[in-house]
């Protein structure tokens, strides 16, 4: 049973329609619980996330942003992993400049059946964010 009402970090997940979405759906199907303040926005491919979106999320008060990347399974080609990685590093540099802790942005490849790994990621990210929150 979850500790109902316990504070959890607000995490925005960018997931992808064909690869990581099914994994997140399956996490629900298997009732693998994770913090309820994790919200997902689906996009076609993780290498299409704009830095500005991520920064916007921090601006609006999200504690963390997580990119559920396609990894090598990406239907749009193998360059996806590399490109997503670049977006992350570029964004993290900007975050430094804006005085946002870069570790508040995370990325991991979530394959279409990686439900357990997704939940693990969310739990550890949540713990990290709570521990390092400024409040």
């Amino acid at each position: 049973m979850a500790d109902i009402g316990k504070k959890t970090a607000r995490i925005l997940v960018f997931s992808t329609e064909k690869i990581s979405d099914p994994a997140i759906d399956m996490a629900g199907l298997l009732k693998l619980h994770y913090p309820p303040t994790v919200y997902t926005i689906s996009i076609p491919c993780s290498s299409g996330v704009k830095t500005s979106w991520i920064l916007h999320a921090f601006e609006k008060g999200f504690d963390g942003v997580f990119i559920a990347a396609d990894g090598s399974d990406c239907p749009y080609g193998e360059s996806c992993t590399e490109k997503t990685g670049k977006i992350i590093s570029r964004t993290q540099e900007q975050m430094k400049r804006l005085d946002i802790e870069p570790a508040r942005l995370r990325m991991a490849a979530i394959c279409s059946v990686c439900s357990e790994s997704f939940v693990k990621q969310m739990k550890s990210f949540n713990e990290y964010l709570l521990k390092n929150s400024n409040n």
Binding site: M1, A2, I4, G5, T8, I24, D25, M26, A27, G28, L29, K31, L32, H33, Y34, P35, P36, T37, T40
Partner: peptide, 16 residues
């Protein structure tokens, strides 16, 4: 998607 990503994922925490 409020089934897989809300009701089922958080069936342990109804208010959540």
């Amino acid at each position: 998607n409020i089934r897989e990503q809300a009701s089922w994922a958080h069936s342990d925490d109804k208010p959540g």
